[in-house]
Structure formats: C-alpha cells, structure tokens
C-alpha cells in the first residue's frame, strides 16, 4: 500500500489530484497548507509528497526545509504554475528534483508519481534518483556516461553541473535562461 500526501491551498486541485491518484494500492492524504502538511508528514510515513510552491501560510520551500531539517527525506514533487530559477535551485539543493508545471493533467500526475516511486531504468531516472539523495556529483557522472542524451537530459546535466559547482542563480540564469525549471520539469509525453 503506497501512501501519498497532496499539499495545495486550492480545494478543487486537492480534490482533482487525490481523485486522479486514488487507486487500488494508493492511499491519498491532503493538506491545505504548509503547516498542516508538516504536521501530517511528521505523523505518517509517505512514499511521495505533491507540494504546491505558493501557499499563503508556509510556502513549499519552507515545507521542504522543515522536512529535511526533521530528517525526512521523502521524495517531493514540487508543483507550481511558475517556478523561479532561485526556487528551483533552492529545491534541488535539498534533494527536490521533480517539478510539475501547472496546469497538470491526470496523466502528468500519475506519470510523476510513478517516476518518483518506481524503479529507475533510464540514465536520467537513475541520475535524478541520486540527486534526490543529494549525490549530485554521481548524478552528473551517470548522465555524462549514459550515452546519447535528449534535450531534457542534456539540460539536466548542465543544471546539475552548476549545482555541483555551487553556482548562484545569476550565473545559472546567464547560462541556461529563466525557464530552465519548466524545461527540466516532468512531462508525461516526454518519457
């Protein structure tokens, strides 16, 4: 039985997300804000967290911080209509490498859930699995050795190199542009 927590301040989305993910073998909890999400995450053990970036009380990045500070390394899928480069870098440094750009379709959602919980088969999936454990150097090596790369894989490689180097947002922006988070985000059609 897999367990997933949906965190979003938008009731319709909570409803839609949970409905889309609910199936045999998946149990869905929902939280309407960052504070209650941290509370629930402290009480239960989840296989994945779908976390909205912008929330009125405690925003997504603070929730991630809270989780990691508490030693909780649950895979987190960060969802937002707009993820700034700064937010993306902050998230990646805390082992959050799965982004979903709203609007998401039920298919996107299921794909993302499968991607973060399932076994890694492609070099990119393996690399991101390492990145979730903050082993960025290893992730880069896997991508470099992984043979021909598609655009998304290539962009991930470049982004992770910057992370390894410890570059700040301006340098990354100059090299990869503002929209990098959207470009490396999860997509059901780009499996």
């Amino acid at each position: 039985m897999r367990r997933v927590l949906i965190v979003d301040d938008e009731p319709t989305l909570r409803l839609g997300f949970s409905y889309a993910l609910q199936s045999q073998g998946t149990c869905v909890d929902t939280a309407s804000g960052g504070a209650s999400a941290l509370e629930l995450a402290g009480e239960n053990r989840y296989d994945a967290l779908f976390l909205d970036l912008r929330m009125p009380d405690v925003d997504g990045l603070r929730v991630i911080e809270g989780l990691r500070d508490a030693g909780n390394h649950v895979p987190v899928v960060l969802c937002s209509a707009y993820i700034t480069l700064e937010s993306a870098l902050a998230a990646i440094r805390r082992g959050v490498v799965d982004f979903l750009i709203k609007p998401v379709s039920p298919a996107d959602l299921r794909h993302a859930f499968g991607f973060v919980t399932g076994g890694a088969s492609t070099p990119l999936a393996k690399a991101l699995a390492l990145a979730r454990e903050k082993s960025f150097g290893d992730a880069v090596s896997i991508l470099e050795e992984g043979g021909p790369r598609d655009v998304r894989t290539e962009l991930w490689l470049r982004l992770l190199r910057h992370v390894v180097r410890g570059d700040e947002a301006p340098e990354v922006r100059a090299a990869l542009g503002d929209k990098i988070a959207e470009q490396v985000a999860l997509r059901s059609d780009a499996a």
Partner: peptide, 17 residues
C-alpha cells in the same frame, strides 16, 4: 500565473478526470 492558472488547473483536472 498563480491566481488564474491554479484554479484553471483545478477545472482542467476535474474536466479531464
């Protein structure tokens, strides 16, 4: 992006479901 797209995302999600 947030205030319009987010509810729209909800609507879309529900419609697709």
């Amino acid at each position: 992006s947030h205030e319009i797209r987010t509810p729209l995302t909800g609507i879309r999600m529900v419609l697709l479901l």
